[in-house]
Computed example of a mutant assay.
Amino acid sequence: MEENHKQNQNKFSHLVKVRDEDIDILGHVNNVVYLRWVQEVATAHWEHAAPNNIKSLYLWVVLRHEIDYHRPAFLNDEIQGFTWVGTHQGAKFERFVSLYRAGTDQLLASAKTTWCLLDAVTMRPKRIEQDILDIL
């Protein structure tokens, strides 16, 4: 899942900051926080890319997270998250997220997630059509 930081510069990017409550007993960011950041970066991408009329029609839910931890993050670090989408099938879409210490090539974590598109009214899976592909 590791990808070169230079290649990631063309992907959607979102900045997060490590908070006091993110630190565990070992003095670094707890592993579940990275997962929260993966979702935060993915959500920020959707919020940025999708127009309001599309956002009112669809919702996303996570079906699977796969995450690799490479380096620890610490209090007051800024984390630069990069995200891009992979293949889709039916209502499912792959999404990739790489989390770096901001301003460096230090990859902290990388994730591959599977998301499912839902119809916002029926809450049932919705096949990914061209309107969504055009956005992502």
Score class of each variant (00 low, 15 high):
E129M: 12
N76F: 08
T113E: 13
K17W: 10
L117N: 03
D22S: 11
W46F: 09
L108D: 14
S110P: 11
K92V: 04
L35C: 03
I25S: 15
S56V: 02
M123T: 01
P125Q: 13
R71P: 01
Q80S: 13
I67H: 02
S110V: 11
A120T: 01
L118M: 08
A102Y: 04
L15C: 04
E21I: 09
K11T: 11
A111R: 12
Q39V: 04
T87F: 03
Q39K: 09
V33I: 15
E94W: 01
S98K: 00
D22H: 15
A102L: 03
V38C: 11
T114N: 14
F93N: 06
P72T: 04
L59Y: 01
I25K: 15
I54Q: 08
W46Y: 09
T114E: 15
K112L: 13
F82Q: 11
V41C: 03
Y34M: 09
Q39H: 13
W46E: 01
K126A: 08
A109Q: 13
I25L: 13
V16L: 14
I128F: 02
A42L: 12
L99G: 04
D24T: 07
L107I: 12
D68E: 15
R36S: 07
V61K: 06
W60H: 00
E21Q: 11
E47A: 10
D119N: 07
V18H: 11
A49Y: 01
R124L: 15
V18Q: 08
H70I: 12
